[in-house]
Nucleic acid binder design. Structure first.
Length: 397
DNA sequence: TCTGGGGTCCTAGGACCC
DNA sequence: TCTGGGGTCCTAGGACCC
């Protein structure tokens, strides 16, 4: 795979996104600690973060840490609108945009040097544009790989720009704490720390076999590659979400089966509405449970055909819930969730006329799938006749 | 630190097929 | 009666991310 020798991948990440939108829209909030969300912190402004407030923290604890914080209710529609406006600027910068969430994306600006300028200038202009046109602070990391661009933006936050030049990659990366690596969370960090490993450089010196024995094959190889800054993944345009879900936290008190069924029906209704609005269908229904001790479990069922209709998905969810009732009775329940996966049947189908050479059409379809969804998405290619045509043999690839 | 709501990716075992 | 190698799909759990 071709890997650019130039740092031309941008990771753009809005700072304290929800809180920044609130500060933008209400001048009284500017320069002051702002917490979005009451029961639990959805976002905290940098003034609140400086006092130790973190997202996902309980509201009570957050107010204890920062009593003068201004707590505001979330305004999802405002955040969605701001996100759209920012992604519009991303796409005006380059067609090669891969969104990661509402507030961050990778941009590949490698081909733009002659037309527009070097990546550093593009990144600086992107930040100005977002500030002027949407009124929000955004941090951009620039590097040769996606992974390193993301690390760079994390280091540069808030409201910063950091370029990692190709000849300075390991010097930048190796002194950082392991927690900066994408994919290292509390569990992995603890395992490494127990071995006295605190920096990325120490991970790099460890050797792949050691990491694999410590963390398992997948995580070990992944971490070894990142510590040596090996990340060949290209920026992928047009990725679509693979599942949609809804969940609801329940209080500690007991819940009757009828209560739970009503909650479940509401959740399935929410999800299927969103699926229909997005014209997606799905086959696999997963029931998500959290018990009184906060341990979690999932139960899933796969339907023969993908659908966005409430009725079959609710029926499947109900059957899963019924089967789980004895366990819920025993252990207590504090959260109920439903998600639908295998969206659109888990397949991507491209319809192309094949009046010409079917083999060439198939090759074109395969390339299109690979471009949009990555080679991992490509498990099978089938050529269908216009009406009822037979399946063609599997691709050799 | 006593915890919301939305996601992603990986692993592993078992059923089933040729 | 005991037994291969290769594969897919489904289910469940776990770690991680914003």
């Amino acid at each position: 795979m071709f890997v650019s020798r130039e740092a031309s991948i941008l990771h753009a990440d809005l700072d304290a996104f929800y809180a920044s939108v609130e500060q933008r829209d209400d001048p009284r909030l500017r320069g002051r600690p702002v917490i979005v969300g009451g029961g639990v912190v959805l976002a905290a402004s940098y003034e609140a973060k400086a006092r130790g407030v973190r997202s996902a923290m309980g509201g009570r604890q957050a107010r204890r840490l920062c009593p003068e914080a201004i707590v505001v209710a979330p305004r999802m529609s405002a955040y969605t609108a701001a996100s759209r406006a920012v992604f519009e600027i991303f796409r005006q910068t380059t067609p090669l945009v891969e969104g990661l969430s509402v507030d961050e994306a990778f941009l590949d600006v490698g081909g733009l040097r002659r037309l527009v300028g070097p990546p550093t200038d593009i990144a600086a202009r992107l930040r100005r544009e977002v500030r002027h046109r949407v009124g929000l602070p955004i941090t951009v990391g620039v590097a040769r790989t996606k992974f390193l661009a993301k690390v760079a933006s994390g280091v540069a936050k808030p409201d910063g720009l950091l370029v990692v030049p190709p000849d300075g990659e390991l010097a930048f990366l190796h002194p950082l704490p392991v927690e900066r690596l994408w994919g290292v969370g509390p569990v992995t960090a603890t395992k490494l720390r127990e071995r006295g490993i605190r920096t990325v450089g120490q991970v790099a010196r460890l050797g792949e076999a050691t990491l694999v024995s410590l963390l398992g094959a997948g995580a070990g190889r992944h971490l070894h590659a990142l510590a040596h800054n090996r990340d060949p993944r290209p920026v992928q345009v047009g990725r679509r979400r693979a599942s949609m879900g809804a969940q609801h936290a329940l209080g500690g008190q007991p819940h009757s089966p009828a209560d739970l069924d009503a909650v479940l029906a509401g959740l399935v209704d929410r999800v299927t509405r969103r699926m229909r609005a997005a014209t997606r269908t799905g086959r696999t229904v997963t029931l998500r449970l959290r018990f009184a001790d906060y341990s979690r479990a999932t139960r899933s069922h796969t339907l023969p055909k993908a659908t966005a209709d409430t009725q079959p998905l609710l029926a499947a969810a109900r059957a899963l819930l019924r089967a789980a009732l004895p366990e819920i009775d025993r252990r207590g329940i504090t959260l109920l969730g439903v998600s639908v996966a295998n969206l659109d049947g888990g397949h991507v189908q491209l319809s192309l006329p094949f009046e010409r050479d079917p083999g060439a059409e198939l090759d074109a379809a395969v390339d299109a799938v690979r471009d949009r969804f990555g080679s991992a998405a490509l498990t099978r290619a089938v050529l269908l006749g216009r009406e009822t045509g037979p399946e063609m043999p599997r691709l050799p690839d």
